[in-house]
């Protein structure tokens, strides 16, 4: 795909999501100008960072026509693994060893998922549903009924530190996003990911190995989950048992709102990132609207409304455009 067609793609759903976000920010800013302060917007972006990082991988998985709903449990497991390796109460190894363990375990479990889907021919929703459950159990077993405490700050530097006044997790998220955009739109591998997703049969006839491409997408997602764990989940030095719970559905939601088709072949990581920013803005916006303490309880309802709205507009525009009535 040429850079120009990347731009023309961005004109669709991505522009819509960006416009909706700008409208939300402007509307809340008019009611409460404090919302527009740089520190507040910065805080919102910090909340987005882990979602954006993982969504980059999950977008590619969904574009290949598969799905991954295990990233929340995987994130919990990786945080605990990193904590166990480095915490002086447990193994007490160096932070480099901890970071390596987190990234390797993430990529390894992603690889296993990919192999079960391709070689084992188990549908990805089943494999990752099983992983969602099993990894959560494994996390609890590893924790052994205690919280993990006193994780060294050197392992948490991506989560807590700042560079040039911007939190490190944002730099990481931007780097991952840029890397994935290049990978998806400017490399042969990226073209193959879209080819396998949009027409598996044509891709196979063209000599593409859908297996290898799918295994890559799952392993990449696992690796990015490790990156997101280091960059987003270690703000405090303790880890609770239910860390990462519900994260998987949030990520899938952002990917779908961002315009990726669940049937594969269509969607961009930019769209997913914009949708993640939109979704994570809503919670903070409700606080700044000062509608009273009970207003923040409506966060999830508004998120759900945005999902349905995104699906609706997509469906209506598609119907008008091509007469097709399927996603």
């Amino acid at each position: 795909m040429s850079p120009r067609s990347v731009l023309s793609r961005l004109a669709g759903r991505e522009a819509g999501v960006a416009a909706l976000w700008l409208a939300t920010v402007a509307a809340v800013g008019m009611v409460n100008p404090d919302f527009l302060r740089a520190a507040n917007l910065h805080a919102i972006f910090v909340k987005c960072a882990p979602v954006v990082i993982v969504a980059c991988g999950v977008t590619l998985v969904i574009v290949t026509g598969e799905i991954d709903i295990s990233v929340g449990s995987l994130m919990g497991l990786l945080a605990v693994a990193g904590g166990i390796v480095t915490s002086p109460d447990r193994m007490g190894l160096s932070p480099q060893a901890g970071a390596a363990a987190v990234l390797a375990a993430g990529a390894g479990i992603g690889l296993l998922t990919g192999l079960l889907v391709t070689l084992g021919r188990v549908p990805s929703i089943i494999v990752t549903l099983g992983m969602l459950t099993a990894l959560r159990g494994l996390t609890r077993v590893l924790m052994g009924g205690r919280w993990i405490e006193s994780i060294p700050p050197s392992l948490r530097v991506l989560s807590i530190g700042s560079t040039l006044g911007v939190r490190n997790c944002l730099w990481v998220a931007m780097a991952v996003l840029a890397l994935t955009v290049v990978l998806a739109h400017l490399t042969p591998l990226g073209r193959r990911i879209y080819a396998v997703g949009s027409s598996p049969r044509a891709a196979a006839l063209a000599g593409l190995s859908s297996r290898r491409i799918k295994v890559f997408a799952f392993a990449f997602t696992g690796f990015l989950t490790g990156v997101a764990t280091l960059a987003g989940q270690l703000e405090v030095g303790t880890i609770e048992p239910d860390i990462g719970q519900g994260f998987e559905l949030l990520v899938v939601t952002c990917v779908v709102v961002g315009g990726t088709s669940i049937r594969g072949g269509v969607g961009t990581v930019i769209g997913s990132a914009l949708a993640a920013i939109l979704m994570m803005t809503i919670g903070t916006a409700l606080v700044f609207l000062k509608l009273g303490a009970s207003a923040s309880y409506w966060e999830r309802a508004i998120q759900g409304a945005f999902i349905l709205l995104a699906v609706l507009t997509d469906q209506l525009s598609r119907r008008r455009g091509t007469g097709e009535d399927t996603l």
Binding site: I67, L249, V252, T253, V256, I262, R263, S294, Y297, W298, E299, R300, A301, I302, Q303, G304, A305, I307, L308, V311, L312, Q315, D325, T326, L327
Partner: peptide, 23 residues
């Protein structure tokens, strides 16, 4: 009537219904 994939519809209504309940 909208022909949207049920996984997407119910992912959306899952958030919406639980959100309304919470609200």
């Amino acid at each position: 009537f909208l022909g949207v994939h049920p996984l997407i519809v119910t992912l959306g209504t899952m958030s919406a219904y639980r959100g309304i309940a919470e609200g």
